[in-house]
């Protein structure tokens, strides 16, 4: 579909790779600048009694800070900047995608997979740095007969390896399916409007609202799963 097409804005080739500046890259830059400008502009007053805009910035800070504290504990606050950046970036990309004629970066699996793979590698490295070889114990379930261990360890490893896939597919599938459904249903609004009056349009408005909720929710889920994975790496909680 037209809205998912990648267009080269500035063609560029580096070492034989196509590194063009695309509309996808443009929207990532827009998202990053929107977040930076918003937080800096909102916090410019540094008022003790916050203005409305400052409240929004403070609420998003506290929202993520509480999420990290609840899921990873106080030791995890070291990684708060990472989780906050991740959440705001995904949220901004999802929300920018809701603007008509814009491009939804997160509806491309390669983008979400790159994000998820980066988190996965980082968290795994962190686990090995914090615990050394003991981190391998994470894959050995407790209280299991020796005979069953080889099978269960393989299953545990596969289950660990599904993390980047499920993390990336969840975000990508939700965003792409939502936008596709909006497009498909939207195409019927005029035709069905002849029969049903304003009802199809009202349905579309409600559906757009749901999509905005999904856009927020998926950013939230992405961030909270990052927290859970971080917690596993830091504290090696047996499930």
């Amino acid at each position: 579909m037209h809205q998912f097409e990648i267009k080269r804005l500035i063609p560029l080739e580096l070492f034989g790779f196509d590194a063009s500046f695309t509309n996808s890259a443009l929207f990532m830059v827009i998202a990053a600048s929107v977040i930076t400008l918003f937080t800096m502009y909102a916090m410019r007053g540094r008022a003790l009694v916050p203005s409305r805009l400052q409240s929004v910035a403070e609420i998003s800070y506290e929202f993520i800070a509480n999420m990290v504290r609840d899921n990873v504990g106080t030791a995890g606050m070291k990684y708060f900047p990472f989780v906050f950046t991740l959440f705001m970036f995904v949220l901004a990309l999802n929300m920018l995608g809701m603007v008509p004629y814009s491009f939804t970066v997160t509806s491309h699996i390669i983008v979400t997979f790159a994000l998820a793979a980066f988190i996965f590698l980082g968290v795994t490295l962190l686990g090995f740095i914090k615990h050394g070889a003991k981190f391998l114990k994470f894959f050995v379930p407790e209280g299991v007969p020796i005979v069953m261990l080889p099978l269960l360890v393989v299953i545990e490893v596969i289950s660990y390896l599904t993390r980047p896939l499920s993390l990336s597919v969840r975000l990508f599938a939700n965003m792409m399916a939502g936008h596709t459904m909006l497009k498909v249903f939207g195409a019927f609004v005029v035709a069905l409007g002849l029969l049903g009056g304003w009802a199809p349009l009202a349905f579309m408005v409600a559906f757009t609202g749901l999509e905005i909720l999904v856009a927020f929710l998926q950013a939230y889920v992405f961030a909270i799963l990052t927290c859970i994975y971080l917690n596993d790496a830091l504290h090696m909680h047996q499930h």
Binding site: L151, V154, I155, E156, I158, S159, T162
Partner: peptide, 8 residues
Amino acid sequence: LGAAAGIM
């Protein structure tokens, strides 16, 4: 094995 991991 993957199905088992998924269910787990």
